[in-house]
Nucleic acid binder design. Structure first.
Length: 485
DNA sequence: CACTGAGTAAACAAGT
DNA sequence: GACTTGTTTACTCAGT
């Protein structure tokens, strides 16, 4: 221990961390595995979803049970060529595309990009899409006693992520740096009966465990994560997704349990979803948030069941949940990086949810300026998805109106030991909210938002760039007229 | 432009 | 003395 270590380092109150956990993972992309999914399969998504949710809920995937469920989940990942788009970390350099990857098809640039990103042979050369905090967290969580010495943390990382075997040794320094810096990790008094040599055992601070779980969950890891389908010409800025879901990439146990259907999205979905995201209309295509929380899966299933029971011909009857003021309060892993967030209290859908362009209009009625948008959707789960979309837009509006910088809306890693700040510093959103309006409880709302988001993701967000841009103004006018009538 | 998160490098001290 | 562990600082970069 350094002589200059401030005594407050380990003794800092974790209060701030409980309220404003941070986004930890830079945007990452990963390879595409489900390349051959058919449209017909996508059509069955909703049905499969229902079963998936049932399974998830029945199994009550609490906490990181999904992580423990199968270590080959991580192995699959580490060998699957999932790649980072972080210019700093991606061994490919600043361009997210691997030089070894094949060029995207001219006819299908987005999918081609997705395909090329998936390099099964490059796993050991790809940095895992987890921050060191997440890696450490997973390592410790994977330990029987939930505590590990640094050496074993190294070993776990090396075991599961061969990338580090050949990586510069600095990553160990980074691990130690994270352990020391991150309040989520705390040293455990070494049991003298244990001869682990020098050093301490590291464990997860229970008070921050949730933060780490959230950070881990939000890591976009599966082939349809936002970063994946980024067209080569799109800017490198990838809005961060905040998933409250276990990894549903191809190695995910949950994925396998459901025959892989969860990730099987038609090609068009990928393409257009990315297109939408590149337009900052759909900042994210969220992985299916099969949440560890049973209530959340219930909410998802409920919303889906609602839709299924109504049929596709009446999506407009779907009653979206009341919008929330801010999603960032409850789960601090906000999607603050998402450029557009919406909160809708009403979703107006066309009589036919699947018109030629699969476009629906979303109208936002909230305390913020309505911003009707035409949301291209791929499938019939349009209303729930539209709800999510609108919520995203509202978020964006709120964010733009308040606390500046993006990730986590200015909250600054409250779990970071020597960066802990006061509440006023870590919760700018709360401050804004307090200054704005009192808001209703949003726990249930959160569930529904995530449900909507997952439905959106699973349905596959199909966006037509031109349609969006060209129809926005028109849609606004039409919706205003409709309201008047 | 300022701020933040994350990664990295480096220095240093202490323990083994 | 070499190595490991732990802490801290400083810096860069991406994103907003």
């Amino acid at each position: 221990m350094g002589p200059t270590m401030p005594p407050s380092k380990k003794a800092q109150s974790p209060s701030s961390g409980a309220s404003a956990s941070q986004g930890m993972s830079p945007p990452y992309r990963q390879g595409d595995a489900a390349t051959a999914a058919s449209e017909a399969e996508a059509a069955d998504l909703s049905l499969s979803l229902s079963a998936s949710f049932s399974k998830a809920e029945d199994e009550e995937l609490t906490s990181l049970s999904w992580l423990h469920e199968s270590t080959d989940l991580l192995n699959s990942f580490s060998h699957s060529g999932l790649r980072s788009v972080s210019p700093l970390q991606d061994p490919d350099g600043q361009h997210p595309r691997s030089p070894s990857s094949s060029s995207p098809s001219p006819d299908d640039p987005l999918l081609g990009d997705a395909h090329s990103a998936y390099d099964l042979a490059a796993g050991a050369n790809r940095k895992p899409p987890y921050s060191f905090s997440c890696l450490i967290f997973m390592a410790i969580e994977d330990a029987p006693n939930k505590r590990l010495p640094v050496k074993d943390i190294y070993g776990w990382i090396l075991e599961h992520f061969p990338y580090f075997a050949n990586a510069p040794t600095g990553w160990k320094n980074s691990v130690r740096h994270n352990l020391s810096l991150n309040k989520c990790f705390k040293k455990v008094d070494k049991d003298r009966s244990q001869s682990i040599g020098k050093g301490s055992l590291w464990s997860i601070d229970p008070e921050y465990r949730h933060n780490l779980i959230q950070a881990l969950k939000k890591t976009p890891y599966h082939p349809y994560s936002p970063g994946l389908a980024t067209p080569p010409t799109s800017p490198p800025t990838l809005p961060q997704t905040f998933h409250h879901s276990p990894p549903l990439w191809s190695g995910s146990p949950l994925f396998r349990k459901n025959g892989g259907v969860l990730l099987q999205v038609p090609r068009g979905v990928i393409q257009n979803g990315a297109r939408v995201r590149s337009q900052a209309l759909f900042p994210v295509i969220r992985p299916l948030p099969v949440s560890p929380v049973g209530s959340r899966t219930s909410a998802i299933r409920s919303s889906l069941g609602d839709y299924l029971s109504r049929g596709q011909d009446s999506p407009s009857r779907y009653s979206p949940p009341p919008c929330s003021e801010d999603l960032q309060d409850d789960h601090t892993y906000s999607t603050a990086k998402s450029p557009s967030r919406l909160c809708s209290s009403q979703v107006a859908a066309p009589s036919s949810p699947l018109d030629d362009d699969d476009i629906i209009a979303v109208e936002i009625q909230s305390d913020v300026k309505p911003e009707p948008r035409e949301i291209p959707l791929d499938s019939h789960v349009t209303t729930a998805a539209a709800t999510y979309i609108s919520q995203q837009a509202l978020r964006g509006q709120r964010r733009s109106s308040g606390a500046g910088a993006g990730t986590l809306a200015g909250s600054s890693l409250p779990w970071t030991k020597n960066r802990a700040r006061g509440i006023s510093d870590t919760l700018p959103l709360k401050k804004r909210r307090a200054a704005a309006v009192e808001k209703p409880p949003e726990s249930d709302d959160e569930e529904m938002k995530e449900a909507a988001g997952s439905l959106l993701h699973l349905a596959g967000v199909r966006a037509c760039l031109n349609n969006i841009t060209n129809r926005t103004a028109k849609g606004q006018k039409e919706q205003k007229d409709a309201l008047r009538n």
